[in-house]
Design a protein around this nucleic acid. Structure first.
Lengths: 343, 343
DNA sequence: CTGTTAGCGCCTTCAA
DNA sequence: TTGAAGGCGCTAACAG
């Protein structure tokens, strides 16, 4: 491997100019005469020279590296956001280091440490700590500390006291759209399954759910709201709980996310009740399901673009930016197969 | 942001030793007396000092950064492999830069370029170019060039002429296990749907499929093998083609991967034929499906571990390593609900 | 066991 | 518009 790499110095010598000049034509930020520029460029091409990004980072104090930390990149919601972030990062010349924290706070901290050591110019947090209603004080303090050293952008989450830049989808509005849609179809008995009590996004959704019901003069029934988690199994178990604790039954069920909704659909294969289902996040799973799931989509591309914009712009740190984007309701078979009103 | 970072120099001064000594206690690779070690460490803690990884890379010529390039991290198979790779990378102190090439060869090259510039110590390739039966000559030459500069490890794919280290699952064997399983259950009419003709993994599977049928004295019917792609829609469309072009119909269908199998299951909801289904990769989708899919699992953790081991070990470049791991058949409802033999 | 001293490859003032 | 020269923060011989 590794033949001795060719450096800016070699190019300079060959072109009969100084390394400073070579550096300038590469960066293109200082005036260089057309003539020398051409000369240098031709030599660069001839040697197939590519500047060493590490040396560059050290010298310029700009690593052009961003970090992205998320609990589970296998979760389609997270990976969907990631690819959009990365896409826009690439456009601005950033590389992205991905850290998969497995929902483990220790690992999360370890990755943050690594990113700081790597002089990451910014760290993007999605899921994990930033959605914890009771975040560990030490970790929060760490984040505050980190903010002094690098930019912090959170997606769909935020931590009190940490003045990070954030972008999120209005998940309350998303749930409202779902309820409106279901009511429109004639449903008045709606349940919401999944999530965990101490997770902010779950709370946002449930709060919005209650409000939306109220808007339609519908009653919120405690026993139709069940915390059970975020995976397929959580849908199944949530449905079981619902059955076990209710005689009166909803006609429509909202899953806290697509995976839970799939679990609900699956669980109902045995029960065979006539139910409408709604998911959340509009991941590939929504289409994998049959019936295909009505789901709320995040504006993924915008989410990614905004996160990168927040990194990129030289925002005043005191000018805390919280950007909120609108969700999109995607209607599919799982609610549309039957319209209660027309029966 | 950015207060003036504290450096090894500050620590040295405060501890009354040289920077070399500080460097040594941090690296822990050279002898330092217990006493000075303690002293230095206490100062490091006191100042909460963390060495600048960039400076370290430049000086030591070891970036401790790996690159991972894959077409679509949202594809559960790819992301599953990724998290295992990353997990083992972390254990060895590597960070991983992820590049999502979107199956675009240009982007693939761009990411490779970025990784080279970042002095990545190794690049892991999964999917994309390395599974192309007719790879572009220029790109292959590029890869050869790259191999001179960094380590190249390919997962589940390989390029002729590029002596890269590789690790893969024996996908032929996987298909053989599937066929054996189906035959065991009494199936003799088996189809295989999905994939693309010019992709190596598809070819491996189909070749193995033919051989497995032969082993059981079963006939391979051309019209029961349909290229259609890799996503859910491909399953659906593949099934349509199957219906359109056959009067005699299989009793069992193998999807080239889980997504295709899901598409098959979904498509069959309308046809309502009595079929057994098998997927491949054993992703979360296999469980999301109902009936849950019998599927072939890769030894994901081993795959990741091996890839990192190949990076890490100082292997002789001429000693080309191709490591082949065994797949695992996971039996689930989609084949087990009915045993033709017992009817 | 520890300090001195060159760099690693590039950027960036400061002069010219 | 260009060159000289001193870092960036750390590592790694080479002495001692």
């Amino acid at each position: 491997m590794e033949g001795k790499a060719i450096t800016i110095y070699d190019i300079a010598k060959e072109a009969g100019v100084s390394t400073a000049t070579v550096s300038r034509v590469i960066a293109g930020n200082y005036p260089v005469s057309e003539k020398t520029k051409k000369k240098v460029n031709s030599i660069i091409k001839e040697y197939n020279f590519h500047p060493n990004a590490v040396a560059r980072s050290l010298s310029s104090k700009r690593s052009r590296v961003l970090g992205f930390i998320t609990p589970e990149i296998t979760n389609p919601f997270f990976s969907q956001v990631f690819i959009e972030v990365e896409k826009h990062a690439l456009e601005k010349g950033y590389s992205v280091l991905l850290g998969n924290s497995l929902n483990n706070r220790k690992l999360e901290s370890k990755y943050i440490r690594m990113l700081l050591d790597q002089q990451a110019e910014g760290i993007i947090l999605l899921g994990g700590l930033i959605n914890d209603i009771y975040p560990d004080t030490n970790q929060v303090n760490d984040l505050k500390e980190i903010e002094k050293k690098t930019k912090l952008v959170t997606i769909n989450g935020k931590i009190d006291g940490v003045g990070s830049l954030s972008v999120c989808t209005d998940e309350g509005k998303g749930i409202e759209m779902v309820v409106d849609h279901l009511v429109e179809l004639g449903h008045s008995k709606i349940g919401i399954i999944g999530g965990m009590e101490r997770i902010t996004t779950t709370q946002v959704k449930i709060k919005a759910f209650k409000q939306a019901l109220k808007n339609h003069q519908l009653e919120f029934k405690d026993s139709w709201q069940i915390y059970s988690g975020y995976d397929i199994e959580s849908g199944d178990s949530g449905l079981k709980t619902l059955v076990d604790t209710n005689t009166d039954f909803p006609t429509a069920l909202i899953g806290i996310n697509d995976m839970v909704a799939i679990g609900l659909v699956k669980g109902n294969r045995k029960l065979n009740r006539d139910l409408a289902f709604v998911g959340y996040d509009n991941t590939d799973l929504a289409i994998a399901s049959s019936p295909e799931l009505t789901s709320v989509s995040h504006p993924y591309s915008d989410l990614g673009k905004t996160a990168i914009d927040l990194m990129d712009k030289d925002l005043d740190n005191k000018n805390h930016k919280d950007i909120i984007l609108d969700p999109i309701l995607i209607q599919r078979e799982s609610t549309l197969l039957k319209n209660l009103k027309t029966e």
